[in-house]
Amino acid sequence: MSQLHSQTAAITPDYISHTQLINALNLRDLSDQQQGAHAMQRLIEEIEQVLMVLIPTLLIQRCQPKPLVCIRDNYDALGYPAEGAAREARYSRYLDNSHMLRTQMSSAMPSWLRSWRTKPTQPIAILHHGLVYRRDCIDRWHCPEPHQLDLWLITPKQQDSVSSEELWLRISHAVLGRTLPKYSIERTATQHPYTENGQQLDIKIGHREYLEIGEGGLINAKLLAQHGWDPEQYHGIALGLGLDRLLMLRKGIPDIRLLRDPEPRVQQQMQDLALWKAVSRQPKTERDLSLVVDNTLDMDLIGETVRETLGEQSKWIEELKLLSTTPYEQLPPAAQQHLGMQPHHVNQLLRIVLRHPTKSIPTQLANEIRNRVYLALNQGIHHLA
């Protein structure tokens, strides 16, 4: 069993089921041209064009590696600590003790680095793109299988007249300037296991709201050496971008679910990078739940549990919004007893926002969805209306 509280572990098992695996592998990759045209592929083409203009001698490789990876390549070979929180089963989808569905496109980079037995004498870049598999909250910006693009660029130092820092700023500025020309980028220092001088890249989308669109930095010299590259002779940068969010910002798409919406009027607009034209939307329906849950349960786990519980109907949820959280000790004894709470519990007020893309949701059906979510999440005494 994983190192989780028993209540939480019951919601999220260590290994995904065969059905979960099949569903994940059958999900269409919107970045893959062989699976049908999509506007996301135009963004990737723009990024490739930027690189060719900036560095005319650059050798560019594009690759879509398989989603099943070794845990070693997803974490160990990239320098993640053995006790790192990212490894927890609540955030990662494990198949067994050695394999998993990748959580990041960087998982393909160690094997790519090792594949170069004869090192190139010119700058090289690899573009890896595809689906990554996580457990995530539910709102208009998040989904559990987002698309990610990783750009790693390595160049011989003796041929490069700029420093690693200058190379990072030049590449990241040019790529984002091309793909998001109407936005300014906020850079925040952060740490990554496989980079040095790492930065998180955010876009301001509200008065005080920022949206992360990527991260990266200088490729860690120790990582290069570990996989056969002499850091005295080579240096490079690593840039990871969230393709779903890039596309939403570029086109002005208000909801991540629209990227896969089968409605013909929507799909017609997913063929190019033209600005989004609003399609008539159905009214939203809201239901509030008072829940007793373990104090370790976060919105990512709640989102995963709701998706598992509702199946296809989970796609009708526009957002799960946490309105308030009250610890056990802040409630009067009568409320603790009424709710069936224990000291490790909290009382959460959760709002379900329902909006079907093409039809209204009847009141009775909305109530049934509310009740199923309540029964799946509530760990105290059930009080259904």
Rank of each mutant, 00 (worst) to 15 (best):
V266P: 05
L101W: 04
R114Y: 13
Q336E: 10
E215S: 12
R370E: 14
T8G: 00
G228S: 10
D261Q: 00
G79H: 02
I185T: 13
D261I: 00
A278M: 09
Q122V: 12
E209I: 07
A77E: 11
D272T: 04
Q330D: 15
L180R: 01
K182F: 07
P333T: 11
R170S: 14
Q33L: 15
I171S: 01
P357S: 10
T155D: 01
G177A: 00
G240P: 03
G206C: 04
L354H: 09
P264N: 05
Q159T: 12
I237K: 04
V266W: 00
P327M: 07
D76Q: 11
I237A: 02
V293I: 14
N378G: 13
K315Q: 13
Y133I: 02
S290A: 15
P264C: 02
H192P: 02
I317R: 01
A9Y: 06
R117D: 13
G79R: 05
A24N: 07
R287W: 06
I369L: 15
L167H: 10
W276M: 00
M100S: 04
K315Y: 15
K222N: 12
T195I: 11
D160E: 15
T296A: 03
Q330L: 15
L331S: 03
Q313T: 06
D298C: 06
L43K: 05
D255L: 02
S314I: 02
R72F: 15
L218G: 04
G252P: 01
A89Y: 03
W152A: 14
A376V: 05
W152T: 12
Q269L: 03
T325M: 12
I11Q: 07
Q61N: 14
L176Y: 01
P81D: 14
D32S: 10
R72S: 15
Q64H: 14
L350Q: 01
D136N: 03
Q269Y: 00
T118N: 12
Q3F: 11
P81V: 08
T325L: 09
S106Q: 02
Y80N: 06
H383F: 14
R62S: 15
M341E: 11
H142L: 01
S314M: 01
T325G: 03
S106N: 06
Y80H: 07
I237H: 08
Q330V: 08
D29A: 05
L320E: 00
S6L: 14
Q148L: 09
Y80E: 04
D300M: 04
P181D: 09
N295Y: 05
D96Q: 03
T285L: 08
Y194H: 07
S290N: 15
Q364L: 15
Q61G: 11
A77V: 10
A86V: 14
V266I: 13
R250T: 11
A37S: 13
T195Y: 01
V53G: 11
Y133W: 04
I171A: 03
K66W: 15
P110V: 05
Y15N: 04
R90F: 03
R178L: 02
